[in-house]
């Protein structure tokens, strides 16, 4: 672990279930939760963790928190082993689970007081949080809406001003105004040198707050990249209009960097190109072009490409 890395996940593998073969018949079922996942989160950054449903985001987060036993690999948080030093680590982290559930017969105030006994709340910061989140803390949790419950969950995670926040879809259920307030708080956290590891399906949120992202798919980490680089480097939309002959779509798709090619109309093609565009440009010199435009793809297009 380097000084800069708050979280280091190395070759994490988690397989659920068991499979047995008795007399040639298979019993049980193995499901890959995460396979050989490696990444690190640096001090003072907001790392976005993305992937389709069931890709392994929550498994990875729960493994980091030592709720799950991993079969292979290692996880260190603040340079400490996530299993052996779990209590020490938990003194310095805040967590909002994806499917947030809080004790329904407690009020928000009671929950803050209850958890204050485990990890002391920063009173001044709690006052600030009360002004940001507009949730009535005197109400029992079972009586408040999903969005308000999410706000209480965020308050609980943030109130002790932990060094490291693990947030599984932290703004799901929040209205846009509250989500924006949460984003502002995340950025303030980052400015104070604290670190956030968050999963989200909200790409606007990822683009707005994250420094780097990791994409996980079918239990495997397929990309870790700076958000800025991702947009400029990873996918471009190339629109080409031809004056005469149009190249065959299959030939175009055979070029390594071309992900897809489709005809917009009879003389214009729209190509999605990954990384190096030069090979495509060289190929196009064989044709007479009317117009050529190259645009960065949106983050959404990039994610969809990785998700599919």
């Amino acid at each position: 672990m380097t000084e800069e890395n708050i979280l280091e996940v190395s070759h994490l593998t988690k397989i659920y279930g068991r499979e047995m073969t008795v007399a040639g018949r298979k019993f049980g079922r193995r499901v890959v939760g995460a396979r050989d996942v490696s990444f690190s989160v640096r001090r003072g950054e907001i790392f976005g963790f993305l992937g389709p449903n069931g890709a392994g985001k929550t498994t990875t987060m729960r493994a980091i928190l030592d709720y799950l036993h991993i079969q292979e690999g290692s996880v260190t948080v603040f340079g400490m082993d996530h299993h052996r030093d779990a209590l020490e680590i938990r003194e310095r982290i805040g967590y909002v689970p994806g499917d947030l559930a809080l004790y329904g017969n407690f009020t928000g105030e009671e929950l803050i007081k209850y958890f204050d006994g485990f990890r002391p709340v920063d009173r001044d910061y709690l006052r600030e949080l009360r002004s940001v989140f507009r949730v009535d803390l005197s109400l029992k949790i079972k009586a408040v809406s999903t969005g308000n419950r999410q706000q209480v969950g965020l308050m609980l995670a943030l109130a002790s001003k932990p060094d490291f926040l693990i947030l599984d879809e932290p703004t799901s259920g929040l209205d846009p105004l509250m989500a924006a307030s949460a984003h502002r708080l995340f950025k303030e956290f980052k400015e104070e040198g604290k670190t956030i590891f968050l999963s989200s399906h909200d790409l606007a949120e990822v683009q707005a707050v994250c420094d780097r992202i990791g994409i996980i798919k079918e239990g495997e980490m397929i990309l870790v990249e700076e958000v800025e680089n991702l947009v400029s480097k990873f996918l471009q939309n190339v629109r080409v209009s031809f004056t005469s002959e149009i190249p065959d779509l299959e030939t175009l798709e055979a070029i390594d960097s071309v992900i897809s090619a489709e005809a917009e109309d009879e003389d214009t093609l729209l190509l999605k190109v990954k990384e190096d565009i030069n090979e495509l440009l060289r190929f196009l010199t064989n044709y007479e072009l009317d117009r050529l435009s190259i645009e960065d793809a949106t983050l959404e297009e990039i994610f969809l490409q990785y998700y599919e």
Partner: peptide
């Protein structure tokens, strides 16, 4: 069943 352990056990209590 209610999923409440996830938050509680993220605090430093054995």
């Amino acid at each position: 069943d209610k999923n409440t352990l996830d938050v509680t056990l993220s605090y430093p209590i054995p």
